[in-house]
Design a protein around this nucleic acid. Sequence first.
RNA 1: GGAGAGAUGGCCGAGUGGUCGAAGGCGCACGCCUGGAAAGUGUGUAUACGCCAAAAGCGUAUCAUGGGUUCGAAUCCCAUUCUCUCCGCCA
Length: 423
Amino acid sequence: MLELSYIRENTFEVAQRLAIKNIDATEMLQQIIGLDTRRREAQTELDNSLAEANIISREVGNLMKAGKASDASELKNRVAELKLQAKELSENLDRLVNEQNNLLVTLPNVPHISVPKGKTPEDNQIVHSEGEMPVLQPDAVPHWELATKYDIIDFELGNKVTGAGFPFYKGKGARLQRALINFFLDNAIAAGYLEIQPPLLVNEASGYGTGQLPDKDGQMYFCQVDKLYLIPTAEVPITNIYRDEIVKATAFPIKNVAYSNCFRREAGSYGKDVRGLNRLHQFDKVEIVQIQHPDHSYETLEEMREYVSTLLRKLELPFRVLKLCGGDMSFTSSLTYDFEVYSAAQQKWLEVSSVSNFESFQANRMKLRYKDEFGKTRLCHTLNGSALALPRIVASLLENNQTSDGIRIPAALATYTGFDLLT
RNA sequence: GGAGAGAUGGCCGAGUGGUCGAAGGCGCACGCCUGGAAAGUGUGUAUACGCCAAAAGCGUAUCAUGGGUUCGAAUCCCAUUCUCUCCGCCA
């Protein structure tokens, strides 16, 4: 959620920057500002009315103590009148606040000034690419066939026990999962992140705090009886640790890493790129989250981008980095880098990480603040990124490293798997 | 699931109808003391919104949440949520 004061003072700029996301918000911004004026008037009216009632009540108290109860009755009536009035004023104020909030929540974050305008993924900017494109044998096959050949991932079994998008990992496949998780966690810890194991279900307030609600209701699995959501990413519980907190400025940057299962309904994306591991309802991911001072969040974004690059380098996967265009960015983000690895048998670039700066958008929703050097309370900036999501990494590892002898495991990972050739 | 107890500021904890945003302590910040530190000591230390060009200041709200009683509620009543203890079940 954008800050009201920011909208009020930079209305034109907000509209201009939202246009990068192909959103014409001019009218809505005017509405919000109009409501804001009325809201403040209503607030003042209500406060005045209550203030008067408070003064009179105190007088009544004094009269009672002095034993002049009879003199108090007229004052009592006056207070009753004021209270009645205050109730109406308060209802009016609530209406205005609600109306304004409903508008504010539907307004996406403003993109960073450097974000390219554009509508589709084709308009994303490739800002970096590295690694050698693998040359495969003519008989090379996609990962879902390799999964069956080596009996390491069982999609059919997942269909039987749960449904599509919930595979079983078996034997060396399970081992590979575990190795990747540890590899990612150990690297993050070495880079200064604090490891955290979060709950996999969160309440409504948390879903709202990171922006999944109300925008993406329906994309999360929901446990009706307990009113809890299965997390689509560890970002949700981890960032919400700091909900309603005022952190010390000396604590910056706060760096957390968490491994978790992620659950996504993926409603509306059936039939497209869903073969094998490309799109699952449940998958594993290691997520890094940082809370940072507003002046340093973009340096931090670059640092996180570099960190993710080192992981892919160690895994010897060819990858490229995209700066997302306005139209392809998420609702909550100001600037997002997507990482894609090349999966050679499918001949496809697969997204394996998304690193974003949300500036104060999430912080405003969840009231995550710090005290500046003047003692003023201000909103923090939040950032996060996948480091990394497992399934597509596995897909490309399998496809790119297939040989007639088995699947070659990169050296950095072999320490974790305990084998350097998967047979 | 059954029975009971409870929810007050960063933390502990007092407060059962009237200047209570809330005693006291701890913690924290700054100062004094000290060669330096500890101890000691002094001062300060919630958040949101509104008024004001802004600061100072003032006003309003907030003692889990929502409603109610009352001229007046942290304090009384109702509902909800959550936490704890015991019993049951259980990895």
